[in-house]
């Protein structure tokens, strides 16, 4: 059923697909997080921005990837950029909602205590609110990362796709080994990335150790 000899002969190809998958995911999550973080801080200051930001990111989330890529290809080609525009826009909704929810979850008493201790607004944000919001923000990052690892596959439509490309090629050629390899590696990637983010969050929030995650 599994052609181990094919795997042996194509380790380079497989490693390349895995690396491409990882690159597509990391760029998408980092850029998506940077944009969402900035947006969330804006929303935190100017509450009325919440509705427009979430409806725009919600709208982006519902655009079918084929339509998005068909629209983008004349401008940005079959490139990494086209793939990332799609992937980044699909992370925004999750990340903005979670970051804002995290900041909102900081108890009012804590905020008042910080004010009482003479913290400025930005001191309060960086030293009190963000650390307390971290578990929820990381929870958003974990969903976004795992979702993106799955979504990278659709960028195979434009010749990117990492492991998705491997699986699609296997499917077209009716060569199951390629599908199994792509499947196992992408699941492993998702599990490892999720665990790594969880560990990073634990390390960054020592005070919550032993409590709820």
């Amino acid at each position: 059923m599994i052609r181990w000899d094919w795997i042996g002969r194509n380790l380079d190809d497989i490693a390349e697909s895995l690396a491409e998958h990882l690159t597509l995911t990391v760029i998408a999550v980092l850029v998506g997080f940077a944009l969402s973080f900035a947006a969330s801080l804006l929303i935190h200051r100017r509450r009325w921005l919440y509705a427009p930001f979430t409806s725009v990111s919600g709208f982006l989330y519902t655009i079918p990837s084929l339509a998005l890529f068909a629209f983008l290809v004349p401008f940005t080609g079959l490139s990494l950029l086209t793939a990332e525009i799609g992937l980044v826009s699909y992370t925004l909704l999750i990340l903005i909602r979670n970051t804002v929810a995290g900041l909102d979850g900081v108890p009012a008493e804590v905020r008042e205590a910080a004010d009482g201790m003479g913290y400025s607004r930005s001191q309060r944000l960086w030293r009190v609110e963000l650390p307390l919001a971290l578990p929820v923000i990381v929870a958003g990052l974990r969903i976004a990362t795992v979702t993106t690892i799955g979504l990278v596959m659709v960028t195979a439509l434009i010749g990117q796709g990492g492991l998705g490309q491997l699986m699609l090629r296997g499917f077209n050629r009716q060569f199951p080994t390629m599908i199994y390899v792509g499947f196992v590696l992408s699941v492993a990637l998702a599990v490892i990335a999720d665990a790594a983010l969880l560990l990073a969050q634990r390390a960054l929030t020592p005070w919550s150790r032993g409590g709820v995650r």
Partner: peptide
Amino acid sequence: CTTGGGGAQAPAGTTPVQVPP
């Protein structure tokens, strides 16, 4: 996946993310 998301589930304790149709 082509609709954008699919099965994104928020873990307990976070604002649930709306799952698009």
